[in-house]
Design a protein around this nucleic acid. Structure first.
Lengths: 192, 192
DNA sequence: AAAATTTTAAAACACTTGTTTCAAATATTT
DNA sequence: AAATATTTGAAACAAGTGTTTTAAAATTTT
């Protein structure tokens, strides 16, 4: 062995993620990144790799964070319909209080099928959310809180779609009340 | 007077729009644009202006196209709820058949509040759709087809959100059936 | 037909891009 | 302490960026 890596990789990835999250992939320069990460580009290329590899790591870091947050918040919830309502309200809350929109949505629309690695990472996150919602919906259906005749996969896809639309709405209008009203509306509709 | 402009500006804008639509703003180079438009950069700067001015013109061209399409398709519809159902199905159809997603959504997430001119143009388009949907919803409510106790603005915002989510879903999964199922689901829910 | 005016094409511009090079610094092993 | 091995910082790299320049081509007015 010889000299050790000086910088904390996780911390550097976190910083890089924040830049990508705010500016997107194409609009972010390597200088932007090395400035934020506080490392030299030679160190970056030595440990992590090129711009694209770094972006992939950042997306994965982002999705890991998000998944962890959900897993922590939604263990042992009383009733599934209550958990679902809470999830919807949390989504509205996150969307209307965070500085930037969702990194995965931004990346999805920026990349649009031209980047398989990013697509796979985003899809994995999407799958997690889908599975999480689906099981809450199925459990709610079993307890008679949601119409049994509707398909749980479709409802889960539908809820995800609504959340994504909320991000867009909030970028355009910056109006938390709009989002709040929609959240109340879809909850009312779900319980029908 | 002297020499006239040789190229057809509307046609050139159309070509530029197609490139921006596919690649986004930052990832599109001036060479990409002049190649597609088949004009020299000096002509571009002489008539239209710089990259950003061109982008603004392209977004406005895009929204004008979209608005025209809706206005043509939805004049004199029998019943408002039928028109609404048709609009929802058309949205599903457009999203699952067009080559790229929506230029405005891409721009919204790429720019994210950092470009007032683009924001205004996208908002104008959003307003048009909102107003169009709202009036269909109100008329449906008056005819007793949609719950009168729900706010038409909220329902319109909600529908717009769903459509935007569909774009995201289709980029990620390329699954038209998912979208179709969601369309059927929200129509069923609206009629409650 | 000449003068005037504008558009066009090609090249050049300065600057930024992502990436690499290379010597100096720093650590580990012998 | 010397030899070895790796990271680091600064500079350099070629290619690409958005934009401008300049002279030739094209059209209208005199």
């Amino acid at each position: 062995m010889a000299r050790l890596v000086e910088f904390d990789e996780e911390q550097a990835i976190q910083k890089a993620m924040e830049v990508f999250w705010k500016k997107g992939y194409a609009a972010t320069s390597m200088r932007d990144l090395t400035d934020a990460m506080q490392i030299n580009s030679s160190s970056l290329y030595n440990t992590i790799g090129d711009k694209h590899k770094l972006f992939v790591k950042c997306i994965k870091h982002y999705t890991k964070m998000r998944i962890r947050a959900v897993e922590q918040r939604y263990t042992n919830f009383a009733s599934p319909i209550q958990a679902l309502e809470n999830f919807i309200k949390d989504a509205a809350d996150i969307i209307t209080t965070e500085a930037n929109s969702c990194m995965c949505i931004k990346a999805t629309f920026e990349i649009e099928g031209e980047d398989p690695e990013i697509q796979v990472a985003v899809n994995a996150y999407d799958d997690f959310t889908h599975q999480f919602l689906k099981s809450l919906i199925e459990n709610s259906q079993n307890e008679g809180e949601i119409d049994r005749s509707e398909n749980a996969d479709t409802i889960a896809d539908y809820l995800t779609s609504v959340f994504i639309g909320w991000y867009n709405s909030f970028v355009l209008h910056k109006d938390p009340i709009k989002i709040r009203n929609m959240a109340d509306f879809i909850i009312r509709q779900l319980r029908h």
